[in-house]
Each structure stands twice: as C-alpha cells, then as structure tokens.
Design a binder for these strands. Structure first.
Ligand SMILES: [Zn+2]
Ligand SMILES: [Zn+2]
Ligand SMILES: [Zn+2]
Ligand SMILES: [Zn+2]
Lengths: 138, 138
DNA sequence: TCTTGAACCTCTAGCCACTAGAGATCGTAT
DNA sequence: ATACGATCTCTAGTGGCTAGAGGTTCAAGA
C-alpha cells in the first residue's frame, strides 16, 4: 500500500490529476488511512497506468470510462473497444489533415516577410486580413 | 451601419462569439443605437474578418491581440508579427509530429482486433494496458 | 398607429481536462 | 515532542467559446 504521492511518482500523473480521475469515476474511490489519506495497491497502479497511456494516445475521459468498463467485464464483446479506437484514429487523421493545410498556409505566410519592414507593408498582416491570398480553404 | 446579426452572417462568426471578442478586447466597443443595440460599419467587418481568419489559422486570442495592436500602428516594425507567425508555424509542426506518432500507434492498435472477440482477449485493451507493445514513445 | 415576433440585450453557468492556491490536518523521522 | 513535508478539501481559474433565462428593442405588416 502506498500514498498518492508515491503513485504519482510511479505513473508520472500529477497528484491533483489522480484525485480528479477519482472524482470523474475513472479510478474507484481509494482506500483511506485512519487519518483520511488515500492508499493504493498494484491494482490501482495498473489502472492509472492504463488511463495515463490512453490519455497519452489522446482518448477522452469519456472514452476511457467505456474502455475501463469493458476491461472490468472480460466476458463482454470487445466491439465497443475497437469502435472507440477506430473513432480515435479517425479523429487523429482528421486533425493531421487540417494541420497540414494550416502548415502550408502558415509557411507561405511566414516566408512572405522577414520582419525588418513596417507593419503597414507586412505580408503576414496582409495575409491575415485577406484569405484571398491563401492557396487553399482551411 | 448594420446589426450584430448581419455582421454574424457576413463573417460567419456566431453572435455570442462576436460579443465575446468584444469583451476580450479584440473588437473595440461597438457603437450603440438609442436602444442599446450594437451597430457596425465596414471597419468592424474587416476587423472581425481578420480575427476570424487568424482563428481559422489557429492563432490564439492573445496572439491575435498583438497582431491587431500592430495593425493599428502602421509605422511600427513588424518583427513581432513575423515572430508570432513563426511560432504558430512551429506549434503546428510540433502538433503534426505528435499526431503522426499517435496515428501510427493507433492504427497498429486498431488493426490488432476486429471486434468479434471478448474483451478478455482484446488487443486494443491489451495495448492500452501495456505501453511496451507500442513501437515508439508518444 | 398598433401589434407582433424575430432579434437583440445582460448575466450566469457549462464544456474539457486539468492546474493553482488557501488553509487545515496527517505521517514520519529525529 | 517537534518539525516539516505530504496530504486533505474546497474554490477558482485556464481557453474559446456555447447555451439558456429573462427581459428589451427594432422593423414590418395590418
Ligand atoms: Zn512583416
Ligand atoms: Zn486563408
Ligand atoms: Zn478487441
Ligand atoms: Zn504507448
């Protein structure tokens, strides 16, 4: 049994974040010492590692909730889990697509001015004022 | 002179968002009718279009504030503008990089299970539980 | 001119996933 | 016994909006 600080060190999840996850129902309510401090065991450590890893991969708290629910019921179909993963992948791909478009425009805009003129003649400001100068929709 | 609703239609920025921008100081306080309703002219339209375009390109409210400040002083050096644009471009590139890493992991994870087994044996869940199965850091 | 009803006003609260800080209590090492 | 770092709860703040309540104003048609 170890403290929340120890759990925090081992998982690299900040202490207030652990408490937040508990409040959100991702972590079960921790056992407490006589003095009301949380104590954890390896089950808590594993669950928090799962959450941390899923968060690192960009899953939302809500999605992780569903995934954990599934993990707690080994006999259920895992269809929901693959759906969630597929949808997360689709999200990430959509974000990449959008960001690549932005990257193109921003790199054109950035190249357009070397910053040693006056704002009146600045291509950066002119580009922001006029989407017509953009190559694509974004 | 036109109403906030008209401005909203022309810029495709929602009415509450326009009020929010005013509150944040991105838009100057609008003129009002005798009955306290906001009225705008083409200057307001242009400024809001600038903001909208910058937001579409991912600039923060704070960054846009600085850009507008610069735009209002045509005689100042535009160095700050190019700095802001360069930093925004760097942000976008960093995000793309991270998302590409995530995409690789997620696509591996997604391919690993077709969703017709039980959660006990699900590769999606196993992957989330064990970062060791990942190809890269992320 | 009067009436309707859409558009407008302000204010508060909610979203997500935390993060920061205040003020009090607990645990442990000396 | 004392010190002091770690923990507790609670509230509020972050960014960039969005939603809703409850009230007022504007403009068009009768
Ligand atoms: Zn410039
Ligand atoms: Zn554009
Ligand atoms: Zn599966
Ligand atoms: Zn991993």
């Amino acid at each position: 049994m170890f403290s929340i600080g120890e759990l925090s060190k081992r998982t690299k999840v900040k202490v207030p974040t652990i408490r937040y996850y508990e409040e959100m129902g991702l972590l079960p309510e921790a056992e407490r010492t006589a003095g009301n401090q949380r104590r954890y065991d390896t089950a808590g450590l594993e669950r928090l590692s799962f959450i941390r890893h899923a968060r690192d991969l960009g899953f939302s708290i809500e999605a992780i909730s569903s995934l954990i629910e599934l993990q707690d019921h080994p006999d259920r179909s895992c269809e929901a889990a693959t759906d969630i993963a597929a949808s997360q992948l689709a999200d990430v791909r959509a974000k990449i697509k959008r960001l690549k478009t932005l990257e193109k425009e921003l790199s054109r805009i950035s190249k357009g001015c070397d910053g040693d003129g006056m704002s009146e003649d600045c291509y950066v400001l002119a580009s922001l004022a006029d989407h017509g100068l953009c190559d694509q929709e974004h």
